[in-house]
Design a protein around this nucleic acid. Structure first.
Length: 397
RNA sequence: GGAGGGGUGGUCGAGUGGUUAAUGGCAGCAGACUGUAAAUCUGCCGGCGAGAGUCUACGUAGGUUCGAAUCCUACCCCCUCCA
């Protein structure tokens, strides 16, 4: 396996920031180039909610992601294969990644994962059983029992046909004991090995494989996991699992995980996308990020804005549902080239939100996509020109 | 002129003798959202008070009652139908 190669993929490191681990890179795929650091937009169910692929592209988006868990349940991997693959099915011809579904199987199961890593909603456990073979879980659509294994996840991801696919792993909750985390980590490694073997059996050369580093908040386990993934012929690595309970802990864990990973492969940080988190992540050497946050807060009435336009000491967005915007006829961000900022006032977007016009969702999603892409663009330019630290300070709280 | 229906907190609208400062929705305020079961969820929402509490409240004015937004009387508005 050590001589495994990805002839249609490349990752080139172009420049390194002398004052941090930040790096400027370029990811080449069969569906185009991704300049890194980059943000990957979540189109979990084969759609970035609320906007067209053409709008995504026009907003400067390089890369999107979908989720194996959702797609295998509906419409099914076979149907996507029949459609000619995910790119054709969803009308996005740029680079795509599918997540393995591991996170969903566990986060939708252990309410605690969802509670601790993500929101605080109580969910009914859907995980029925975890065995060496895989996970038996209950479909959220019809309650039927499903078996998710490394082989199933990879088979689905090969049928779905994204450029990048991800190994099936177990995502442990924050409060997992060290003993459980270690046990889970070893099992995840065995699952990742099986994932890779399944991938290798039907590899058509058009997909590149990401391995996930686990280990929770435990330094030695992160190191052990890094040694494992480094030893496997993965194209890139994704940092997964719990990242702690606070921002400080998250940066600590990311640093822990990152420092032991080989520097020649692209590193993805799963599920992180706050503005300050991106600056910290880039500084720690992360190449790509994905997160539902920009598009989700858009649907909840939030517009990401530059530091100077914030109306709240810590919040990275403004809430246009507030009545205080009812008569604000200025754009969300006068420097933003998106159609929302060019044509619509805050007052109009506020009105669209209050009347629950669906255009509000499109308008804010489009803006936030532009915002994230412009942010990443500015980070890349800063890395190119050696001014990353200055830019980082400009955005610091 | 006759018959009927109705006036409830910012608003719409429940309640029809006592756990009622008064269900709900909306608006308002605050918070959350980070590998998307999320165009979602949570809290507050008459005044004063940190709080126990207290004051003012269901068109207006009286009355019945231990007790009324709820029953009675008069009056003032609004709506529908008939002439």
């Amino acid at each position: 396996m050590s001589d495994f190669s990805y002839p249609h993929f490349r990752f080139d490191l172009l420049k390194k920031d002398p004052h941090s681990q930040a790096r400027r890179g370029r990811l080449s795929t069969p569906h185009g180039i991704v300049e890194t650091p980059a943000f990957i937009f979540c189109g979990t169910k084969a759609s970035v909610k609320g906007i067209y692929p053409s709008q995504l592209k026009a907003a400067g988006t390089q890369f999107c992601l979908a989720n194996t868990y959702h797609l295998m349940l509906q419409p099914g991997a076979d149907l996507i294969e029949q459609a000619g693959g995910l790119h054709a099915f969803m009308g996005w011809d740029g680079p795509l990644l599918t997540d393995s579904g591991g996170f969903q199987v566990f986060s939708l199961g252990y309410g605690s994962v969802a509670d601790e890593i993500k929101g605080k909603r109580n969910r009914i456990s859907s995980v029925q059983k975890i065995t060496e073979e895989g996970v038996i879980f209950k479909s959220y659509l019809d309650g039927s029992l499903k078996m998710m294994t490394p082989e199933v996840s990879i088979e689905m991801q090969q049928k779905i046909g994204a450029d990048f696919i991800v190994a099936f792993d177990e995502c442990t909750p924050y409060h997992s004991s060290r003993t459980y985390t270690e046990c889970s980590l070893e099992r995840s490694h065995r699952w990742e090995t099986r994932s890779f073997e399944a991938f290798d059996r039907h590899n058509n050369g058009k997909q590149a494989f990401y391995g996930i580093i686990q280990g929770g908040v435990y330094a030695d386990l992160r190191e052990r996991s890094a040694e494992y993934v480094n030893s496997m012929p993965f194209f890139g690595h994704a940092i997964g699992g719990t990242l702690g309970a606070s921002k400080e802990e998250m940066y600590y864990v990311v640093d822990l995980a990152r420092r032991h990973l080989t520097s020649i492969r692209p590193i993805h940080l799963l599920g992180i996308g706050g503005i300050s988190d991106i600056f910290e992540g880039v500084a720690l050497g992360i190449d790509t990020f994905d997160c539902v946050h920009p598009t989700r807060i858009a649907r909840h009435g939030g517009a990401l804005v530059p530091f100077a336009l914030r109306d709240h000491s810590v919040r990275e967005h403004i809430s246009l549902k507030r009545a205080s915007y009812a008569q604000d006829f200025t754009p969300i961000d006068p420097t933003c080239p998106c159609e929302t900022c060019q044509k619509f006032s805050r007052a109009y977007v506020h009105y669209l939100l209050k009347t629950r016009e669906i255009l509000a969702i499109t308008a804010l999603t489009l803006h936030n996509v532009f915002f994230m892409n412009r942010l990443m663009q500015s980070i890349r330019e800063a890395l190119d020109t050696g001014t990353f630290q200055e830019l980082r300070k400009k955005w610091a709280l």
